[in-house]
């Protein structure tokens, strides 16, 4: 599944430039950086409410497909800047983790 399909289906708001054709290998939902460092996989979409600059470092290190900020969180100025520098895609949604996981789970299984 591509980023573009997910963004469209879920009505995600993009906060950075992104490559719509990039593939998403799966989804990882966590608000614990250590957890993401240890257990996320390449090209995972990361669902979190953490919005501080360290998230970008984690996303870069783990080659994640992008970050979805839940609960209408707005990234810190510094986070956004770093994301642009590193080419990490950030999206936001008003949904909570539970709902967006639910919808994404459905979406990924249909394919």
């Amino acid at each position: 599944m591509t980023i573009e399909e997910i963004v469209k289906q879920l009505g995600l708001k993009s906060l950075t430039k992104y490559d719509g054709n990039a593939t998403v290998s799966g989804v990882f939902a966590s608000d614990l950086l250590s957890d993401v460092m240890a257990n996320s996989e390449e090209e995972n979409f990361w669902i979190t409410l953490q919005k501080h600059p360290n998230t970008i470092a984690v996303a870069t290190l783990k080659d994640l497909a992008g970050i979805i900020l839940v609960n209408n969180r707005k990234p810190d100025e510094e986070t956004l800047e770093k994301a642009k520098e590193e080419g990490v895609a950030i999206f936001s949604t008003t949904m909570f983790t539970f709902e967006i996981c639910g919808k994404l789970y459905d979406l990924l299984r249909e394919l």
Binding site: D31, L32, L33, S34, D35, L49, Q50, K51, H52, N54, R73, K74, D76
Partner: peptide, 17 residues
């Protein structure tokens, strides 16, 4: 909302967001 001086250690304890 969202302003924090917490270190990663605290965030990984589930607080400091």
């Amino acid at each position: 909302e969202g302003y924090s001086t917490a270190e990663n250690r605290i965030r990984d304890l589930g607080f400091g967001a």
